[in-house]
Amino acid sequence: MTDRDFSSFVRDVRKRAHVATRELSDSAGVSNPYLQGERGVRRPSGAVLRQLALALRMTTPIMYLRANFTASENGSAMPLAIATDRELTSKQKQTLAEMYDAFVDENERAASK
């Protein structure tokens, strides 16, 4: 999947959810210009993918898969491993992804102190 394909995916999901770009920007906690990535200008980081997934009420693993994101900004392939594990149910994948995201967020907050 190309960046443009991912951009189209985000745009389509946003439109189906009847969410304006500015509303998505506010919900995801990212700047409106950063959402230019929706049009293929930028490839979002793992943190932004997590925020977009939450704002669009999607599972983080699906967002990572659609972005063809093989590793987060810290080099971890955990989100992709969760998303592609065939032994887990969708609910288990979402729960693990949420736990992982919470740990990553906690570590980022601790590092910024």
Rank of each mutant, 00 (worst) to 15 (best):
L49D: 01
A77D: 15
R57C: 08
L56A: 08
M63C: 01
Q51N: 11
T60E: 10
G46T: 11
A71C: 12
Y64D: 01
E73Y: 00
A83F: 01
R43E: 06
P79A: 12
P61V: 06
M99I: 12
Q92C: 09
L54H: 07
F69T: 00
L56V: 07
L80T: 12
R42K: 12
V48P: 00
M99S: 12
A97N: 13
Q94N: 13
G75M: 09
Y100W: 14
T60V: 15
E38V: 15
A67E: 01
T89M: 13
P61M: 07
P61R: 04
Y100C: 03
S25R: 04
Q92W: 12
D85F: 07
M78C: 12
G75K: 10
D101S: 10
L96V: 02
L56R: 04
L65N: 03
S27R: 14
A53W: 06
P79S: 11
R43T: 15
N74R: 06
S76E: 15
N68V: 14
A97S: 13
R50H: 01
T60L: 09
Q36H: 09
A97F: 10
S90P: 00
I62P: 00
M78P: 01
N32L: 15
S31W: 11
R57M: 04
T59H: 06
A97R: 08
K93R: 12
S45E: 06
T60H: 08
E87G: 11
R42L: 07
T95P: 03
R86D: 10
T60M: 11
R43L: 13
P44T: 13
A53V: 07
N32T: 15
L49Q: 02
G40S: 06
I82G: 01
Q51A: 14
K91R: 15
Y100F: 10
S45R: 07
L88K: 08
S31A: 15
A77C: 14
L65F: 10
Q94Y: 10
P44K: 12
S45Y: 00
L49H: 02
M63P: 02
G75Y: 05
S72G: 06
F69R: 11
M58R: 08
P61C: 07
M63W: 04
R57Q: 11
Q94D: 13
G37A: 11
A77L: 13
D101V: 02
A71L: 08
Q92G: 05
G37H: 05
L65I: 10
A47W: 00
A77Y: 08
L49E: 02
Y64V: 04
V30S: 05
Q51Y: 02
L49Y: 06
P44S: 08
D26S: 10
G40Y: 04
S45P: 00
P79D: 09
Q51I: 03
Q51G: 00
Q51T: 04
L35Y: 05
V41W: 00
V41L: 12
D85S: 07
V48R: 04
A71S: 14
A55Y: 05
P44I: 13
I62W: 03
A83N: 01
F69V: 00
P79W: 09
K93E: 02
T89W: 15
E38N: 10
E73L: 08
N32V: 15
N68S: 14
M63H: 01
M58G: 02
N74E: 15
R43S: 14
